[in-house]
Design a protein around this nucleic acid. Structure first.
Lengths: 241, 241
DNA sequence: CGGCTGCTTGATCGCTCTCAAATGGGGTGG
DNA sequence: CCACCCCATTTGAGAGCGATCAAGCAGCCG
């Protein structure tokens, strides 16, 4: 196999949507894709735009946010390497429900609507994979929904950070760094609260040396204790020490 | 075609998961299904159980609820005729994420895991339909998530009722009745609040003759005004008259 | 070095939860 | 058919979480 092709295949190696396809098929899939590079803070697509393509992150991180008619904005999720976003064309939707922004410099592959349809038709395995991935996303969202409906802000922020550690945690000497720019405002939009409340919570945690944070930067110094806060059950005893 | 077969097909006529299948195929699908009848308040499956089957509602209404470790319960949704529930086997999940309860006497069809897989393999159209339906559910949930994150309780309750009117609204002389037993507690679990708060809100609406309600019963007398409350933007002016 | 953007912190308000108790409608069993 | 009891609902009082309003501060980039 040509080294050129080999390299191309490697791009999609970790992408679960294409799991089960062989080298030749993967190569074909990559061939049909458009590679896109975006620098930090650039927009990939906007909420309400016609959904012409769906994307896979190759490198970097992308923020998916939604804005309500009343101006309130929320962050639906962050997508990192190997993850899908803008999957509307996969299931025949019309417009993108959110806006995708590059949080770091990032590269992605994307396919247009008809190519997407053709791929799923030719390789039913892709459709099944898509079904699985969508199912997982649904499960995730259900969990977050329940969280939002039943838990206090502090707990929600803790959980959000725990999830982010899983997605983008990087060991540094102080602890575990969330490896992309993350402001208080971002955390607020991720957990359904205000930047003021997030700031107060992080300040309190900083006092307890649970985290170390700065401008758009969060390091978890004692992940285990954060998990404890995240999982703390019931409105009973809020033992914070 | 035998009238027997004809009748069986009719069962799945409105079910979008099987859209595109011809009569013979539909008949086969029905043949592989297990018919299940449950009376009011009976359980179809419980949260955490191994997900062995997936279901389609033929008649009646089913409540899907989730309970958190801390005891807080939420209602994920209500499923009516033609809708799917317990779709975990469709996308290879493990256990049911919620509990399904018959809210009214109801009948359903269900298929086991292997039959499901076989159906999707034999009729790729079914897999694609499933993808579409799941996509819609995801979009719905995203909307409700944003709602929960950004709106006041009164607005959320109004929206929940508006949705329920769409799903189960029935014209009666006073207005539009939500056509299944619906308690204050149910509405609270549907909107992420408490039954007390819901009770107060409904009482206020009742005073304004916007609704008429009773024990597990809600009639919307002025749907248009309810929609106004539901869509009322911004924290600006809460003009309630 | 200057201005912008993100962060902190105080003060206050009010929505909503919590706790408590009373009321009443409806279904059930005798 | 009636009486009783259970359960849904209502309503009050009070507390508190978190939003809102309002400044001031400090990195960082240009």
């Amino acid at each position: 196999m040509a080294p050129r092709q080999d390299e191309r295949i490697r791009l999609l190696e970790g992408v679960r949507l294409f799991q089960g396809l062989n080298a030749a098929e993967l190569s074909e899939v990559v061939g049909a894709a458009k590679r896109l590079e975006r620098k930090r803070n650039a927009t990939l697509f906007r909420q309400g735009q016609e959904a012409t393509r769906f994307f896979v992150v190759l490198d970097g991180r992308v923020r998916i946010s939604q804005i309500a008619p009343d101006g309130h904005q929320i962050i639906a999720r962050y997508a990192g390497s190997g993850e899908l976003f803008g999957c509307v064309p996969l299931f025949g939707g019309d417009a993108y429900p959110g806006t995708a922004t590059a949080v770091t410099h990032c590269t992605s592959l994307s396919w247009d609507r008809s190519t997407t349809a053709r791929l799923m038709e030719r390789y039913p395995r892709v459709a099944v994979n898509a079904l699985h991935l969508l199912g997982e996303e649904l499960a995730q969202l259900r969990g977050r929904y329940q969280e939002l409906a039943t838990q206090r802000v502090e707990q929600r922020v803790a959980r959000a950070l725990v999830r982010l550690v899983g997605q983008a945690g990087k060991r540094v000497e102080e602890g575990v760094l969330i490896d992309f720019p993350l402001s208080r405002q971002d955390l607020a939009e991720l957990t359904g609260t205000t930047l003021h409340t997030v700031s107060r919570i992080l300040s309190a945690w900083e006092d307890h040396e649970l985290i170390a944070s700065g401008r758009r930067r969060v390091v978890i110094r004692r992940p285990h204790d954060l998990v404890t806060i995240a999982e703390d059950l019931g409105p009973g005893g809020h033992t914070k020490t």
